[in-house]
């Protein structure tokens, strides 16, 4: 698939000699090799200069049939102002006015061709910081390809093969034909609802089946709005973690009791005495 770029051994050895980290040395040596091969192919390196850009644009326009008209760019209305790229309302109003040409019929341009068929001129209304808050903080990042995609692929293969192996050896259960007149001795919900069925032993069905699950769902939905603690560090959120662990443990316990310790007629049994009254 990928043409592995050969590295420039000379550069690599020199950088290693200088005590550079192997990853960095390899990357720089790769870059050097690519640069060399580009020069050999007669391509230019680096970003194009302004003249080159202008020339390319001319050529493009000529080839595209002289579509776009050369444009003026609106003078920035806020020279020197606006700390952090934010405009005051007055500055923004001035900008909008400038870009709309003060109500004139021919709007002054912001660098987009004016005589095109575009009907939207939203660009003039977007604040310079953009629509989203862009975090400028540098972070330690890696390329999605190949790093993340390879991890995902391996995880997918592992999970897929596990499931395939399980499916090869374990058959899904199929009982006898459904019969509404014959209540089976052991009658259980699927395991993820076992907690609710267990609650049904202790509470009125409305409480166990509607009120409590409702409360749990609402509590889950509300969690991020109730937990106002800004820290994500476990040290600082002992209460939240305790509460959630308690919630999970409570739920897990109910499911385990319901699944393994309940037998015929939903009576309490020991599974090693009465057998496992549990089907997935």
């Amino acid at each position: 698939m990928s043409d592995e770029v050969e590295i420039d051994q000379e550069v690599y050895d020199r950088l290693i000699g200088e005590g550079k980290n192997e990853r960095i040395a390899r990357a720089k040596a790769k870059a050097a090799a690519v640069r060399k091969s580009k020069i050999a192919e007669g391509q230019s390196l680096g970003p194009r200069s302004a003249e080159e850009n202008a020339k390319a644009l001319e050529e493009f326009r000529a080839s595209a049939g002289g579509g776009g008209v050369a444009t003026k760019t609106a003078a920035p209305a806020d020279a020197g102002g606006a700390a952090g790229g934010r405009l005051t309302p007055e500055q923004r109003a001035a900008r909008v006015a400038a870009s709309l040409g003060n109500g004139g019929s021919e709007p002054a341009s912001l660098g987009v061709p004016t005589s095109s068929d575009h009907t939207h001129r939203l660009l003039a209304l977007v604040p310079p910081a953009g629509i989203q808050q862009v975090q400028s903080k540098q972070m330690d990042k890696v390329y999605t390809w190949p790093h993340l995609l390879l991890v995902e692929f391996v995880a997918l293969l592992a999970a897929g093969s596990l499931l395939l192996i399980a499916s090869f050896f374990l058959d899904a259960p199929l009982g006898s034909l459904a019969n509404p007149n014959e209540v089976p001795a052991i009658n259980k919900a699927p395991w993820y609802f076992m907690g609710l069925q267990e609650l049904l032993r202790y509470f009125h069905p409305m409480v166990a089946g509607v009120t409590l699950p409702g409360v749990f769902v609402v509590a889950l939905l509300a969690a991020p709005y109730v937990d106002k603690n800004p820290s994500a560090h476990p040290e600082n959120r002992k209460v939240a973690n305790m509460a959630f662990t308690f919630f999970l443990a409570f739920w897990g316990l109910l499911v385990i009791i319901g699944s393994f310790l309940r037998g015929a007629g939903y009576e309490f049994v020991w599974p090693w005495v009465e057998g496992l009254g549990f089907t997935l």
Partner: peptide
């Protein structure tokens, strides 16, 4: 549509009736 299915679902839907 076996016994397992019918009765597991019966448990669940009876609760919704409340």
């Amino acid at each position: 549509w076996d016994q397992l299915a019918l009765w597991a679902v019966t448990v669940g839907t009876e609760m919704m009736g409340f």
